[in-house]
Write a protein that binds this DNA or RNA. Sequence first.
DNA 1: TCGTGTTGTAAACACCGTTAACCGTCCCGT
DNA 2: ACGGGACGGTTAACGGTGTTTACAACACGA
Lengths: 251, 251
Amino acid sequence: MTETTRRDRPRADTEREIRQQARRLLVEQGREAVTLRAIARQLGITAPALYRYYDSREDLLRRVIDDICLDLGAELTADLTRIDEHDAVGGVLAVCRGFRRWALAHPQEFTLVFASPDDSAHCEVDESTGKMMRPAKDQFGRIFLNMAGKLLATHKVLVPEEEKVPADLRADLIAFRGHLLAQIEHEGIELPEQALNLSVVYLMLQFWVRLYGQVALEVFGRFPFAVANPEPLFESMLTELFDDIGLADAS
Amino acid sequence: MTETTRRDRPRADTEREIRQQARRLLVEQGREAVTLRAIARQLGITAPALYRYYDSREDLLRRVIDDICLDLGAELTADLTRIDEHDAVGGVLAVCRGFRRWALAHPQEFTLVFASPDDSAHCEVDESTGKMMRPAKDQFGRIFLNMAGKLLATHKVLVPEEEKVPADLRADLIAFRGHLLAQIEHEGIELPEQALNLSVVYLMLQFWVRLYGQVALEVFGRFPFAVANPEPLFESMLTELFDDIGLADAS
DNA sequence: TCGTGTTGTAAACACCGTTAACCGTCCCGT
DNA sequence: ACGGGACGGTTAACGGTGTTTACAACACGA
């Protein structure tokens, strides 16, 4: 009976189980129910013991958020394995649909990650010694943008009028393009430099706005009227988005 | 010294002050800080006294949400007084910009009203005796749709291809159109029946998706990259939306 | 064997929502 | 004039919360 007590198992295992139970409570009973004592109860320990692993409830919640992001990323990646490697359009479609499916299936988690007041979340401030820095976060962004990059590498998209992008945004867009190019190259995807001109980057931004808006409205039930079956609405938006960039939705 | 104690003042005044202080806490310290005891402290009374006015904290929060909606409505209406009565385009623009300005200035309130998991919010179930029924809620929807209606009554919009609207949505759109027509007529606006065909209703839905998506992303800081100055992005979206329906943005 | 670090505990503090019992102060009907 | 509600407040209490403190058990290396 090697009955491994908690003391034996590596610390990381316990940390993981804590976050796991926290998430279970979040999903099943909402954010308010994620209580240190409730978590501890699930693990068969007492609340103060959790402070051996996390600085505070806030800290724990942040790590849970990171877990959620990783899970979302894993789910979308799994979806992509069912898509033909070279079907870039299908890949982007799968990512978009996967995002919606995930959000509807995990409203609490979606709210926590994608619809919580900016808790100064983007703390990537490192400074070589600064302990802050929580990446993950944009797992969805990474995967979505990767697929978009692959799509751009293999299809010629309908670039909108060159000078439609607002001048004040050029600096931001250029910086973002740099980020994108680095990441896409790091992923081993060939991308002709000019395929990612500012108009295209700008288009991707608008794509994200519509995708996010649609999904969030659906999760929160804030459409201006009761939509009996929101799926056609979503699909219609997708085909429209692809029409806009001159690609047929080979659904 | 007629020093009016709380007992004298009409009950409604106290109720209002309670919600007012609750909102102050919400704005200044976030949702979690909206505590019955904290509210009572501000009023110089004790927490259980609040139960004379509201059934529970949840109940109080719901009324606060209604207040927020009314305030948003009032603010937008005030914006509209500064617009020429007959400038429908300007009116819609003002409402959109006002919505964004309000959301950025009141992130906590925006989150509570527009980005909280569907707490079975749309309880308009009346049934002639049922006590449920909390209107307000869609103050923004009402004003926005009114302006849109006025715009449709005075301008000929570029109707997209008739049959682009997904078939499964027709029933919902028809019902919504009925709702819109009734409300617009109730507002005393003449609207030629066919000016509000299904394509137009569908367009308004997409308009809302993009407006909401953009504003929510900005409030939550969830754009895929750091946007130094989001305002041009918003304005660009607005002009694009108006371009799409064939109206010049007479900004 | 003797620290020493790790991981748990119990006790306590301050705060929370909510309920119960109580207590004046008005006002209204008899 | 007097009794009795309704009203609007109080205090006390229950069980819950995050968090800190002090303490106990165990593991392990010097």
